[in-house]
Design a protein around this nucleic acid. Structure first.
Lengths: 125, 125
DNA sequence: TCCAATATACTACATGAGTAGGTGACGACA
DNA sequence: TGTCGTCACCTACTCATGTAGTATATTGGA
């Protein structure tokens, strides 16, 4: 799997990994929002599964605790997420944009802001 | 559940329902692409589940076959899909747009087209 | 040196999605 | 009227995800 599927909760954990850098299961668990914080072993299990998916890896051991780090970049994970979502709209962005507009989730202001970002990025390259 | 979750495959079936209007399980199954067409009973099971979710309903019986129709509108289903996806980006469209841009899935041309659509829609209202 | 605390590793279980087989009923038709 | 094909309905299996308990290992400190 070059780009394994990352579930919603796995994504939360990856976010912590990206934010904290190298850290232990305990640190990740405690970094999660107070409300609805899952049990330590729940986080542990998910981290193990992310390890099987090659999304994280163990880098060392401090005391008796393993220290993990993200293998996949935030960008690549979100790219996969976007690709999967776009597939629902036939794979291209335009029909999705149309739906976004229709749903009222996107305003002209959002467009302007994004367009500016895009222009700036193109100018730089 | 005002807006039940619709899975990928369920969405395919809903698309057929929206396209064909009132139809039987057999018609839906045969309308699916030749490649990887699931067994009749697979489609049947999924339609039953959509029925439990109140996404489709039986309207009548022709011979011994039930005829179904969509209850949920295409728009409302896609709206739910978009909302769920946006949640991954904190609920608002802009961070998602930024990712779309970074991933190269969105071009300036896409923007122009969508912007035009938006303007037309606003003019009309 | 020995114990209490903590982590690990393993196991379990529910739910939802996707897939499909089996059985019995029913209607067309020869 | 007996046979065939189709359909309804029920059941079952696999895989992913989310959740967590438990038994064992490790380790730092009294």
């Amino acid at each position: 799997m070059p780009q394994p599927k990352i579930s919603r909760f796995e994504l939360e954990l990856m976010e912590q990994l990206w934010k904290l850098g190298q850290c232990s299961v305990r640190e990740i668990q405690e970094a999660l929002p107070d409300r609805d914080r899952p049990a330590y072993t729940t986080v542990q299990t998910m981290i193990y599964r992310l390890e099987e998916k090659k999304a994280v890896r163990r880098v060392k051991k401090i005391g008796n605790a393993h220290v993990f780090e993200a293998v996949l970049s935030k960008k690549s994970v979100y790219r996969r997420l976007i690709d999967d979502f776009l597939d629902l709209f036939g794979g291209s962005a335009q029909p999705m944009m149309a739906q976004l507009l229709e749903s009222g989730k996107l305003s002209l202001a959002d467009f302007k802001a994004a367009e500016k970002t895009l222009r700036d990025a193109e100018k730089k390259s």
